[in-house]
Design a protein around this nucleic acid. Structure first.
Lengths: 380, 380
DNA sequence: TTGTAGGCGTTATCAC
DNA sequence: GTGATAACGCCTACAA
């Protein structure tokens, strides 16, 4: 039971590991859909004997019109509360509409009244604590424009990404995605689709881009630790689909810049989970007992490291300081609370919607870059 | 900064307080949308001088046909990869389609090929740690049917609920909502809309229903504490929009059943936040120093109580045991991890989609009831 | 292989 | 006040 509950916390963070799971529907999860309606049946008063199935065809405006003995136009007036209609006919029409379980077809309406924008949003995992805030940002920004958001998840399976882009792309006006594929890989699946890619590396792209300035964050973390007087700092690195090297490289560069005696040996590599964080911390400490501070790939990993430190009797931050990345509010729950490099995930979502707006206006937006900020809590 | 990060954790849980915020667009956030396309322009080779605006009209099948010098039918074949077409024409058509930035209209497609079901999902708050799992459950179950999910949030503003039901309801085939309004209040906004209400109290309803058996959960918690030898148990209660009394009443009844000396004084009432939990715990301990266990309204509140206990130097569970409700994975991060009554929030989402399925088939599903389970971790 | 005719369910326009 | 008629953009026949 307890194990089960931990699962959500041990799922990888926003940098999705390339690992793939078994048995996946490569055709994606959206697209063809299932046909609900069947042949005509007895709706408007005219009997039809083609009926084969239990699921009844939905009533249309004309069905209601026929049943109420008026033209479909009159029904439309009644439904849409247009003025020019006799109150009595209105009442009668509305009543038969209700009796027939009439509901306007959103497709037909969409055809005649275009304008309602729907944005598709693809994330690797809805439960991973990084994403809800991001999703909330997208929804909120979309809301402000009176757009709606279709949320889809790849469930951490990278192989679902491409088919999902295509399937979802066919159903919405634009797609925002936390995607791991390159432009070239994406191209055939995003044919003409307004697409915003989030957190992709610094390489240029044909699509809308929202990016986090990871290097700035890493430098801020290192500077902070140095300011605190630390000279021996280690790093727990993890696989990241994009920017596989930005963090460790920036870390080493920043350390060198401050004249710290930090070498390759002070960077360990592990999996992007709490357990990985624990293992990474153990390895790091074993190899370099003189370390006084550790910078972790992200908060999840940092939390794992924190717990491992506790198990080992290492006091944080007295014996060893610890700083994470992402700024998850979860970090507050540790005692002391986790210091971190905070990414404004909500803002990230807003920036993405902003890119969509520009894209939909037919322009090519410059990439949006979000700079993370230092968030000193209790572990440094 | 630190305060900011805590915010997500202090938002109310799935029982939304009735409090309302200032200045709200009562008309809801979806619905009318914004018109993007303008007058005709020069797309298919035929010049039109009605053009007023910068935003170009989207190319249609016929535009592509005209430009490529074929019939719109041929274009359709090329786009949809139908066999009966000359490879060369196909190539040419596809090319001009790309040049014209042609994208098929989802509305027109939806009209002709119905069947893709879209479910609307309304939650009070995407970031509240209770909901991401629930949302994930809905998305996953919808995915399995090849349905898509439009997620909308009331942002904890109860006044947005009703308009949102109507607006979203007009855009989707069915709505699943974590709603606080009664059937009677909902009725005029859900006219004919297949609707599934989640976590509503035990009163009967015309809609689909998914419900958590709170009473069973409360009883399990009390029984567990009694089994652990506790005789003096307190409860921290909070406002819940639905079932305002189920928990405290069940708590008192269960305590009485076990012959515990528990009275009204052992139940304190507070706000549904971490801070509220802390205050509640303080009040409870001050009034009844002999308490050896506390049952909290939910995990968020329990976490607040936990931290207050730590501040007071009360050891958990040695001096005072503590149990929450909801089974948030967050509870794992406390030291010791929080014992709780676990709700399978993912399953809750699946059950909701199941209700939608039945509703869409034209039947009336019996309410689905989910029984929470005891999750003993470290605080009891 | 390609083109023509008709319909999907709705709203807008303009007669009556 | 009400009702024809014509779009909207696409797809499925069927005909050429």
């Amino acid at each position: 039971m307890s194990t089960n509950a931990t699962q959500a916390l041990t799922t990888p963070n926003h940098f999705i590991p390339a690992s793939v799971n078994d048995h996946v529907n490569v055709h994606g999860s959206l697209g063809s859909g299932r046909v609900i309606r069947q042949d005509r049946t007895t709706i408007g008063g005219i009997v039809d004997n083609n009926r084969q199935d239990a699921s009844p065809r939905r009533a249309t405006l004309r069905d209601v019109a026929r049943a109420a003995g008026v033209s479909h136009q009159t029904v439309s007036r009644a439904i849409n509360d247009k003025g020019e209609i006799d109150p009595e006919t209105r009442r009668r029409v509305l009543e038969t509409a209700r009796a027939l379980h009439y509901r306007p077809s959103r497709h037909a309406r969409g055809l005649v009244r275009p304008g309602l924008v729907t944005v598709g949003l693809i994330v690797p995992d809805v439960v991973n604590p990084f994403f809800p805030e991001f999703i909330a940002g997208v929804i909120q920004a979309a809301d402000a424009q009176e757009w709606q958001v279709v949320v889809a998840s790849t469930q951490n399976d990278r192989r679902r990404e491409l088919p999902l882009v295509r399937a979802l792309g066919g159903q919405v006006d634009a797609v925002v995605g936390y995607l791991s594929h390159s432009d070239a890989e994406l191209a055939p699946y995003a044919e003409g689709l307004p697409l915003v890619v989030v957190d992709r590396g610094p390489e240029p792209s044909a699509h809308g881009i929202v990016r986090v300035d990871l290097a700035a964050g890493v430098r801020a973390a290192v500077r902070h630790l140095v300011d605190r007087g630390h000279r021996r700092i280690g790093m727990i690195d993890c696989d990241a689909v994009c920017d596989p090297l930005v963090r460790p490289e920036t870390f080493l560069a920043a350390a060198a810049e401050h004249g710290l005696p930090v070498g390759e040996a002070d960077v360990v590599h592990t999996t992007q989970t709490m357990d990985g964080g624990g293992a990474g911390f153990a390895t790091l400490r074993a190899a370099n007992p003189e370390l006084t501070a550790v910078y972790a790939f992200n908060d999840l990993v940092a939390i794992g490291a924190f717990q491992e430190a506790r198990r080992q009797g290492v006091r944080v931050p007295d014996d060893c300081a610890l700083i994470g990345f992402d700024g998850l509010s979860l970090g507050e729950l540790l005692d002391p609370p986790l210091s971190t490099v905070h990414i404004d995930k909500r803002r990230l979502g807003e920036l993405a919607v902003d890119q969509v707006r520009v894209l939909l206006a037919g322009e090519t937006p410059p990439p949006a870059v979000l700079t993370p900020t230092l968030m000193v809590r209790g572990t440094t």
